[in-house]
Design a protein around this nucleic acid. Sequence first.
DNA 1: CGCATTTGACCAGCGC
DNA 2: GCGCTGGTCAAATGCG
Length: 311
Amino acid sequence: MESAWFDDPSLSLDLTVGPLPSPDRATKEMESDRLRVRGDSATKEEAENLEDRLNKMNEENKRLTKMLDAMYASYTDLHSRFFSLASLSPSPREASPGRKRKIDGLNVIVVDDKPNGRASELIESSPSDDSCKRWREEPKSKVTKVYVRTDPADSSLMVKDGYQWRKYGQKVTRDNPSPRAYFRCSFAPTCPVKKKVQRSAEDKSILVATYEGEHNHGHRSPGEAANGSGKNGAPYPCSVAISPSGPMITLDLTRQGPWPDVARACREMESPDFRRTLVDQMASSLVKDANFTAALATAISGRIFQHSTTD
DNA sequence: CGCATTTGACCAGCGC
DNA sequence: GCGCTGGTCAAATGCG
């Protein structure tokens, strides 16, 4: 993503709150105020105050622009690091090269994410997998592998990805002493998605979840959908916050479907809708920022006071 | 009692 | 064709 989106007129930050006019309009109104008071020596000082306020607003505007630039730089940096990791990461291979049902030709997506100590995950994806007869029945099915670091002492083969799964089988495979569990998506009866979960032979603390197919319902389980960051209703796994230490963009990768959909999330991040949402959240965070709102309130009250005194 | 999980049997692909 | 292997089925079992 380049800076072009920043110049998109549809994404212009309109941080107008309440009756506060746009900067251009404010300038014109102040100019008309100045014309109205011209010749009135008693209000000349007031006009100078207005000019001071205008200058202060301009400075505030510059400061906010810098904050936005920093935020965008942070976002761009995060984005580039994300994709550089995706292109550089070695692909862990759990199966020996000579395996009959080898998994090959997988594209790799890497996600190194540890929100609140959660598992770090590495994701591979492939547009199709013809390694198995039954999977060939759905040649367009998408195969994605997710590596989830978990507690080695935890013997359960559960990978919490937000969807509801029903286990239908378990098998010990030749190349791995750990059993492999087979799951189907049970959220929708017609959902074709399947999942295999097995501990890595090399590292018992890593669960390898292989997803096959794409969900045809687009919803997570009700319980998952109701909790966490989903409560704000934003359609993207991203939130923006402005803290005293600086602006922060948080990618909440627990949102919007299972981990294999991170690739889709990346595509969504390129979309105008995502950018608009990002800007909305930036504006929302600015409004929530105490310093910003205090400055805004001061400016607004000043304007209201001036209007009431000049009318 | 209903639902999810477990587990052994069965099926089919692949290599020899 | 046979044996090995991965994947699925379905009855048995467990749990709330």
